[in-house]
């Protein structure tokens, strides 16, 4: 997988930089352009025009992932009126891996529902930001999290552009990050669709290889320009995500962030990462040089105003 190679490249770049310091030798800098993804792995297409807000997916997820009892039953639709701090709609949280929110865009005479969970990015920000490598992207496309090594710094929550990972703050002893894992251990691994996909009565969720569901998305838009806006959310956003969305109204109006850009998040950090080997290799020589220079001056001046402490130390 190309994206994996890329991560390895970054790693080896840093490791190489560190090594170079020890060896005192500089490695030639190499810049490799990132040229798209291989699109292996599975994906899910969320067709917002089909979702009826029945919350079956939430129920199925709760069962499949053994999540704790929800505040209200999954057939209680008053939950759509919940407002969080700042008038925000519900989000994923500890014990809730997926939520369905209701929106009322003015151009439609009926509400629109939006299911939302981890998007299983092709180049996940959570993964690249984790300093103990707790995240992995499986070949099937799921972004997995390993609670055994997580230290709890919550950098992944800072990094995730979709505000997905949640932290179980309430646990004093082993708080962990909780998020959708695309049902990998129980289903995806065996080629089965995620539980929420299977439970969706209207097939608002379509499971398949990411390449295929992306084609479906485009085909549906092509066939029904009167229904859909011409955009597949997740095709390119932050480098592409395994979960894709098509919508009858402007994505902005139903809570999607349209300003994320097409770069994977790690690209924003690259300019800094690139300086690391540079500093590691150039600084020692540079400052050793300064030292020589300064001391030469010292020697010439035969420094006579050395402090008392200097004597005391010698």
């Amino acid at each position: 997988m190309k994206s994996l190679n890329r991560r390895n490249f970054l790693k080896s770049g840093l490791a190489g930089g560190a090594l170079a310091t020890f060896l005192g030798r500089e490695k030639p800098a190499q810049a490799r352009e990132f040229s798209g993804y291989t699109n292996k792995g599975t994906g899910v297409l969320v067709d917002l025009s089909r979702c009826v807000g029945c919350r079956s997916c939430e129920a199925a997820c709760n069962r499949e992932q053994n999540l704790p009892e929800p505040d209200v039953p999954f057939d209680d639709f008053s939950i759509f009126d919940t407002e969080r701090h700042g008038g925000l709609k519900r989000r994923t949280s500890e014990g809730v891996f997926t939520v369905v929110n209701r929106y009322n865009p003015e151009e439609l005479d009926h509400p629109l529902f939006r299911k939302f969970q981890c998007n299983h990015c092709e180049e996940p920000a959570c993964l690249t930001s984790c300093f103990v490598n707790a995240y992995t992207k499986t070949p099937e496309g799921a972004v997995m999290y390993n609670p055994k090594v997580c230290v709890g710094c919550r950098n992944c929550m800072i990094a995730c552009p979709f505000y997905v990972p949640a932290y179980s703050y309430s646990k004093p002893l082993n708080p962990i990050v909780e998020k959708c894992i695309m049902c990998y251990p129980t289903r995806l691994k065996f080629g089965k669709p995620p539980a929420c996909v299977e439970a969706c009565p209207t097939e608002a969720l379509t499971f398949g290889s990411r390449v295929n569901v992306l084609k479906f998305a485009k085909e549906r838009i092509r066939q029904h320009p009167e229904i859909f806006v011409d955009h597949v959310y997740g095709e390119k956003e932050v480098g592409g995500t395994a979960w894709l969305y098509i919508s009858p109204v402007d994505f902005k109006k139903i809570g999607f962030d349209m300003n994320l850009g097409h770069q994977p998040i790690i690209n924003y950090v690259k300019s800094f990462l690139a300086t690391v080997p540079m500093v590691l290799t150039i600084w020692p020589a540079l400052f050793a040089g300064f030292y020589r220079l300064a001391n030469r001056k010292d020697g010439l001046k035969k420094d006579n105003n050395e402090g008392a402490r200097e004597e005391s130390q010698s």
Binding site: P70, D71, P73, F74, D75, T82, R90, S93, E94, G95
Partner: peptide
């Protein structure tokens, strides 16, 4: 059971689906 029809009935207020606000 799937829909947790009895959820919240116990009256215990939990905040698992919301954050601290």
């Amino acid at each position: 059971k799937e829909f947790r029809a009895d959820a919240g009935a116990s009256g215990a207020t939990k905040k698992s689906s919301e954050d601290g606000h």
